[in-house]
Simulated assay, not measured.
Amino acid sequence: MLTRLVLTDFRNHADLTLSPGAGFVVLTGANGAGKTNILEAVSLLAPGRGFRRVALSDMARQGGAGGFGVAATLEDGGDAAVDIATGAVATAPERRVVRVNGAAATGNVLAEWLSIVWLTPAMDRLFVEPAGGRRRFLDRLTLALSPGHGLHATRYEAAMRARNRLLADDGPPDDAWLTALEARMAEHGAALDAARRDAVALLVDRLAGEDDGVFPRADLTLEGGSGDAATLVDILRQGRSRDAAAGRTLAGPHRADLSVVHRAKGQPAALASTGEQKALLLGIVLAHAELVAARTGRAPILLLDEVAAHLDPGRRAALFDRLAGHGQVWMTGTEATLFDQIGRDATRIVVGG
Rank of each mutant, 00 (worst) to 15 (best):
V261I: 11
T231W: 08
D243Q: 12
G275R: 12
S226G: 05
L271G: 12
H254I: 13
T274C: 00
R242D: 08
V260E: 03
R248C: 02
G247F: 02
A269N: 06
H254L: 13
Q238T: 08
S273M: 09
D234L: 01
G224P: 01
G266P: 07
V233L: 08
K265D: 03
A264V: 13
D257S: 12
Q267M: 15
K265S: 06
A270H: 08
Q277M: 09
D234I: 01
D234S: 02
A245G: 03
R240M: 11
L258Y: 14
A272R: 00
R240T: 15
T249F: 00
G227R: 03
R242C: 05
P253L: 13
G225M: 05
G252M: 05
S259V: 10
S273G: 12
L232G: 03
R248I: 03
I235R: 12
A264D: 14
L271W: 08
K265V: 05
S259R: 08
D257Y: 07
G266H: 02
K265T: 05
A229R: 09
R255Q: 15
R237Y: 02
R248L: 09
H262F: 08
V233K: 06
T231Y: 10
P253F: 13
A229Q: 15
A256R: 08
A244N: 11
H254K: 14
H254Y: 02
A244Y: 12
T231N: 12
S241N: 00
R248E: 13
A244H: 05
H262Q: 12
A246K: 04
S273P: 02
A269D: 01
G275M: 03
K265Y: 00
A269L: 02
E276T: 10
V233A: 06
L271P: 11
P253H: 14
D257L: 06
Q238S: 04
A264C: 12
A230E: 14
G239P: 02
A251T: 04
R263Y: 01
A264E: 15
Q267A: 10
G227C: 07
L258M: 13
D228K: 05
A270E: 07
A270Q: 04
R240Q: 14
A270G: 10
V261T: 15
S273R: 10
V233P: 00
G239D: 15
D228E: 15
H262V: 06
L271Q: 11
D228C: 11
G225W: 09
A270S: 11
K265L: 07
G275C: 03
